[in-house]
């Protein structure tokens, strides 16, 4: 009995070796359980669009990507404020009534908030930061908040890039993104 079990075990091992060595395209092969062991260390992160690109100075972009969001505010708010005032020296408040300190305090913690009920949009004229949908013109929204002043009417040549939609229509159903070019 013991020997019999040993033989089966040996056969299983032998079969296993065959399976591992057989061609990837061989349909007869049993799908092996992949190896997911190991520790994965952060390389990049992103919440809202274009935050690292626009607000983080060139020497700090890698550091921003590996600073957890809960620590980003303390680490980056003052640098974000300096960058905002460099981009728009005339900044007072914006359409959200945020001062420079308030606005950059909100931006430095780079998370995308999303509502769990109702419409999800970066900005649609009514809803503000309830998510980010594919067709949201997020750049115009950010330009408006950076350059548009309290009424959104300041610096009109800087608040709209005049690219108002994607180059392919999105799908209404999963996976929502358009097929590749």
């Amino acid at each position: 009995m013991k020997i019999f079990n040993f033989k089966i075990a040996a056969m299983v091992i032998a079969l296993g070796a065959t399976a591992v060595s057989c061609d990837k395209d061989d349909d007869m092969m049993v799908d092996p359980t992949p190896d997911f062991a190991g520790t994965f260390t952060q390389a990049d992160q992103m919440g809202r669009p274009a935050i690292n690109t626009v607000f983080v100075t060139s020497g700090n972009k890698d550091r921003f990507n590996v600073t957890t969001p809960s620590q980003q505010g303390a680490a980056f708010q003052s640098a974000f404020q300096a960058r905002l005032l460099a981009l728009n020296p005339g900044y007072t408040t914006n359409a959200l009534t945020f001062t420079a300190a308030q606005f950059t305090g909100a931006l430095a913690t780079d998370v995308l908030s999303v509502n769990t009920s109702g419409k999800t949009t970066f900005f649609d004229g009514t809803n503000v930061l309830t998510g980010r949908a594919l067709n949201d013109d997020v750049i115009n929204t950010e330009l408006l908040l950076i350059f548009g002043g309290p009424t959104g009417a300041s610096n009109p040549t800087l608040t709209n890039d005049n690219v108002n939609a994607n180059d392919k229509p999105f799908l209404t159903s999963f996976p929502y993104l358009a097929k590749p070019w």
Partner: peptide, 8 residues
């Protein structure tokens, strides 16, 4: 409301 972000 959820706060969400993507990491690689």
């Amino acid at each position: 409301t959820l706060n969400t972000w993507a990491e690689s």
